[in-house]
Amino acid sequence: MLRYILIRILATIPVMVIVAAFVFLMLRLSPGDPASVIAGDYATAEDIARIREKLGLNEPILVQFVNWIGQLLRGDLGTSIFSNLPVTTLIGQRLEPTLLLTLTTILFTVIVAVPLGTLAAWKSGTLIDRFVMLFSVGGFSVPVFVLGYILIYVLAMTLKVLPVQGYRSPFEHGLGPFLWHMVLPTLTLSVIFIALIARMTRASVIEVLQEDYIRTARAKGQSEFTILLRHGLRNAAVPIVTVIGIGIALLIGGVVVTESVYNIPGLGRLVLDAVQSRDYPIIQGLILFFSFVYILINLLIDLSYPLFDPRIRY
């Protein structure tokens, strides 16, 4: 067991190194002078020289890479050009809304998508199933921000039951206002995620329901509903949990857009501001941050497999 955990943890190291190397090379191999790209359109020659010096771009590339890795190991994700603040500080300032939005979304998604997908699998081929699949394919097709604006238009502007935009921290304003402002962003961000998880749940459960041991359970005289939950869903857990992990990547993309639609001051806004002010180190730092978070979450999910399937064990 310990060996399994150790191997899994060690296996993430090369992936993290590859992410770091990729981000490193992206800047160095891009056409044009990276320093002037970073400095932006209105930078003077001195600015560019200063940035080149600051980023160590004058050193040999191997030295740069070693420095880069060392910097990352110390937890340094770079420094913003405009505010001159470390990217980690900026992330710290903006982390709360993004984290909470992601959590409410994952929670809401799992609560909705897993029963929905299981139901569709159980009633596979019926009208219920068709409806779930239609919702799913629709969820994949509507851009997140269009969906956000439709929800704002209907629920906030026309029916006026929910606030249009904004964010209330639960620590300053209390849980009520926080949830009140979270409803629309969570709904918006969940749709594509629900489409993904419901689809995967349905597919996995349908596959499991064709296994021989389902037939064995029927031969015992077990009721269809208990078969669905005890033998069906439980055996489908590993692929479902896996796709939740992979879906995190999707969620990160969606967060950026959702936050900008609802004017939530989180990491997504940080990305957008960085794009507008051409503050490349922030974008770079956020890529690293999100990638590492993604890798860690998927590591945790890998480590949880033995809980769902006793065959996965070392």
Binding site: D212, Y213, K220, R234, N235, D309, R311
Partner: peptide, 24 residues
């Protein structure tokens, strides 16, 4: 029919490898 299965008739299958639920 569910009641009869198990109580008055039972079945064993060809593939013992797949006929049992792997997570139980």
């Amino acid at each position: 029919l569910r009641q009869l299965r198990g109580e008055r008739m039972a079945m064993i299958f060809q593939e013992p490898m797949t006929a049992l639920n792997p997570v139980m």
